[in-house]
Write a protein that binds this DNA or RNA. Structure first.
Lengths: 213, 213
DNA sequence: AATTTTCTACTGGTTTTCCTGTATATTGAC
DNA sequence: GTCAATATACAGGAAAACCAGTAGAAAATT
């Protein structure tokens, strides 16, 4: 471990105090070298062109480009660079997106210094790393999603949206150039799938399961 | 400025990296002395009993007690201590609550070191301090709130909730021991106030304006 | 105490939704 | 090409929601 070359990392986060915190937390560790810090995506991408970088600590909330998009771009241009996602409060959907787009790990910002070093080392060596809380969040979301979020067809989602907009069956039928009777069938199927008995409740649970807006 | 005694501050935040960041950002400044750091409310309150503290940097998201509640408690027990609220992304309602409960200032976590020192000094001297972004958020929320969020009466809110639960007019009437005709009147008034023409749309806009859940 | 707001309730309608059951064309997956 | 899933469509009827206008009683505010 002594002779090992340091891992070159770049930190991207628009909060100066988090940046400073990471610098401080990682400062003691010999095996990690903070090459650069940025508060936006554009500058970071520019830096990546001409410098050695092993791992990026990437905040999800950036001022210019969405963290998820940023991750995708990094993976396309520099497949060798490992991405460690970072955020404060984490909706499962965002974490999932980050992973899909190539993030090798994910940490909440309440991570300790140990976790941080551990995560960086692990993903540098080609492994995945997810903080214990993140794992819990992902597990919950997986077990929930399958259970109580029924799959809606494209048409159903569309009609659901129109119902939520306050359109009547007839108005929807006109808009979609189909029979009102067809719209009613969809409506019925929607309520059956979502286990409710009228449009008001339908809209509520749809928003809860983030199928709307 | 040279002979001035340092301001004693305490930092409360459950993110170690933010804590470290604040330590680092404030470390250079002679006029501010970080007396202690905590990651939860309970320990902080205990510490306040026996130590001099001028200013508290208080995160809104704490593991044990809500930041707003925490602020209230601090003000009750130690009215002399100034509170500077801190958070990443800030809904206007939370900032408003913090101010109501006695916070003298509010900063987003993307504040710079300068802003930070400035804020602490200002509120220590009895002034208010709000970061420019916070001011913008508050201004927006004030100008918006009056405009498009109609005031609902207690009864209307209650019935709105029951409608969103999928209950019919008759069911609601039974539950509240009133005539179905009365419920219908409320229903109509709700739709009129929210400028929609059926219950589905009513539920959607109610959730959008966070009058539900 | 006076005034405004909110809650209550009604009449008499029209429109829309919801229920049950059935059935064919179309699309997508294998 | 076959099979399953999806989108389409209908009938007939019951239930619920929506519309327009009115108005007295109870609270809350001033």
């Amino acid at each position: 471990m002594e002779a090992m070359e340091a891992i070159h990392i770049v930190i991207v986060d628009d909060h100066p105090m988090v940046l400073e915190g990471l610098r401080s937390l990682l400062g003691d560790d010999e095996s990690i070298r903070i090459s650069a810090c940025f508060t936006n995506a554009t500058e970071t991408l520019a830096y990546l062109e001409g410098n050695r970088v092993d791992v990026i600590l990437l905040d999800v909330n950036l001022p210019d480009i969405n963290g998820v998009e940023m991750g995708k771009m990094v993976r396309e241009r520099h497949p060798a660079i490992k991405i460690l996602g970072l955020s404060t409060y984490s909706e499962p959907s965002i974490i999932n997106q980050m992973i899909k787009n190539g993030a090798k790990g994910y940490l909440l910002k309440n991570a300790t210094a140990d976790e941080l070093v551990n995560a960086i080392t692990q993903i540098y060596n080609g492994h995945f790393y997810f903080g214990s809380e993140v794992q819990k969040i992902l597990a919950d979301s997986v077990s929930q999603e399958g259970k109580d979020t029924p799959k809606l067809t494209r048409r159903e989602k569309h009609i659901l949206q129109l119902i939520a907009d306050g359109k009547t069956t007839n108005a929807i039928a006109e808009e979609l150039f189909i029979s009102p009777l067809t719209v009613e069938t969809h409506r019925r199927n929607l309520m059956q799938k979502m286990e409710v008995s009228n449009a008001a409740a339908l809209v509520k649970v749809a928003i809860e399961k983030s199928l709307l807006q």
